[in-house]
Design a protein around this nucleic acid. Structure first.
Lengths: 339, 339
DNA sequence: GTTAGCACTCTCAATGGTCGAGTGCTAATT
DNA sequence: AATTAGCACTCGACCATTGAGAGTGCTAAC
């Protein structure tokens, strides 16, 4: 699609912007990667890339900054390269290749290490996949409330309450119950988390609709509390990055990251991408606004699914993050193999 | 010491500043609390209070803001008044006067409620006081490291490693061990936390000195991990307060609050004050810089010491915080009595 | 298709001027 | 001796202006 030169230029803009956090000019590009053509030529190309939606010009006498589309292009083109220094590699190995008391201990170490090396906020989600749902029951408590009971192979979870002060009759509850069972029996409890409610019901079923939504919310909370563990570390690393030099952004970021619910969702949803690594760039790809999320899926035990990753500004050092996640995934695979 | 009028004026400045977060002028004071004398008189008094160290004038054409000394005066003079609305009271009761699964559940509810009602960051520290230290052992591992083992009545804790790559001989370790045992045997593990190392050793003992410091650090960590639980909630409330409209302050605050170690220390040390409630204002009273800490001691069970409190800017709504802590302490005392 | 050259635009930082808030001081009053 | 009215003074906040610098887009030549 893009000419080779355009690709080179686009990559140069992204690289430059990742490094400096400020608009990249035609001259810089010339100096760094295209000495054999003039800045005017590059300006023409930049202009073309801008109209294609890859670049943004903050104002007329500024350089260009990459759009989210450009970052998407950039990570798609990225070829793996181990850009970790020897110090970093041995730091990681030192921290992880030692005796650990428990899986939780390992996970804590992993989040620590990932956030320390990448300088982003790291998240690890653990889910015990062995325990499947055998039934979901809805119980009308006749006081305007309904109890949602989830039965799994090993446990009965019954913390979820739903207000049903609007009149719902017996039949509707049975309908809802049947629907839930059809959808979720046999699946892992974590399935609730990334379940998006299909809005295709007709208007007739409006009431049922709102009931479903409430139930799904409860299930999501249950899923988090009972099926998954979320470990977060390095929230304060955002202060190192210039996009968070303003309190409003810091606040928004911290409130996103503070919700384990939200994090579990973002870090386990693979967004349809396959492969072990998932990269989400910006809100159009279901990361929080202005943020990117990089995750790597790794088995943390026989039946334990794990997701290790970082969240940070869209202007993220993807190369380094990918290298760290790769290194750590390999260590974990080794560790698990030995046991 | 201060004339009645000076006291009234000083309180008015503090009240006004707590409310508006901006310097208080002589006219405002006249309007709000001293209609029977002129603004000029008040100006004279303000000037006197400033030279006594109670007030600060940011610049010549601004009003006055209270110094930490003024806040100290203010809280000393404060008479208790229940300034909670009925809604707030019933909100608190609703959240706490229900069946709880466990003590940890109760504590989580308490921190939630305190931070929600006060709009500050709330901290609860729990310490099981039953388990006394019976011995502390230092074990030279002959690889430049030393293991610190703490034996309590019920457990043996041996996670603490100290580097002793500098040469320490057997004798010194024995000396150190004896010293530690003399100080801590029979006490609760939480005693490490607020132990401040006495710097009175002679130069001869410089090496021993540095060893002691390292050991105390390890013990402090142990104390936290094994003897106390720290629950924190509402860190993000700081964004509501104007002193944190600048990232640098937010960062400093969050890094202080993020260290459970530090929080446990600040929230359990009573700073020599007696009574159930402790108020620390600013770094001169061992709160973090620019912060105040208000804590209330409460038994959370037969042998379980608890400390409930908030941390926030020195410009804190002390009246409200004290009312909330009082209300909650009473509820807890009731709860514990019933069991 | 590429490039040199140049006019143009926009940001940023510094400058200066006005306005208003609130003070400190002085002299008069109680 | 304490209080007060009055007024000059100071300083920050706000705004408009200016000049320098960066980087572009465009044009005409290669």
């Amino acid at each position: 699609m893009l000419s080779l030169r355009k690709k080179k230029i686009l990559s140069a803009v992204v690289d430059g912007y990742i490094e400096k956090a400020s608009p990249v000019s035609s001259k810089e590009i010339q100096k760094n990667c295209l000495q054999d053509c003039s800045s005017a030529t590059i300006r023409n190309e930049l202009s073309a890339l801008e109209s294609m939606g890859y670049l943004i010009q903050p104002h007329v006498s500024a350089g260009r900054i990459p759009s989210e589309k450009a970052f998407r292009f950039y990570v798609n083109e990225l070829t793996y390269e181990n850009c970790l220094t020897d110090e970093e590699t041995s730091f990681i190995e030192n921290k992880l290749l030692r005796k650990h008391d428990s899986l939780d201990d390992v996970i804590q170490q992993i989040t620590d290490v990932v956030s320390q090396i990448t300088n982003y906020t790291s998240v690890v989600v653990k889910a015990d996949m062995a325990d499947k749902i055998t039934a979901i029951k809805l119980l009308d408590l006749s006081n305007g409330q309904m109890l949602v009971v989830i039965v799994t192979e090993t446990r009965v979870l019954k913390d979820g309450m739903v207000d049903i002060s609007d009149e719902f009759d017996e039949l509707m509850l049975l309908q809802a119950q049947a629907w839930l069972n059809r959808l979720f029996v046999g699946k892992h409890i974590s399935q609730f988390l990334n379940f998006t409610y299909p809005y295709t019901l007709t208007n007739d079923q409006f009431k049922l609709n709102s009931l479903f939504k409430k139930i799904i919310d409860v299930l999501r909370k249950q899923s988090l509390a009972n099926g998954m563990d979320v470990t977060i570390c390095g929230e304060h690393n955002i202060f190192q990055h210039s996009e968070y030099s303003d309190v409003a952004n810091v606040q928004k970021f911290l409130s996103e990251v503070g919700s384990k619910d939200k994090m579990a969702q973002v870090f386990t949803d693979d967004g349809g991408q396959d492969g072990f690594v998932t990269i989400k760039i910006g809100s159009s790809e279901n990361a929080p606004e202005g943020c990117s999320v990089v995750t790597s899926r790794v088995a943390l035990g026989a039946n334990i699914a794990g997701s290790i990753g970082v969240i940070g500004p869209v202007r993220m050092n993807y190369k380094k993050v990918l290298a760290v996640l790769d290194k750590i995934s390999n260590i974990i695979i080794d560790m698990m193999g030995k046991e």
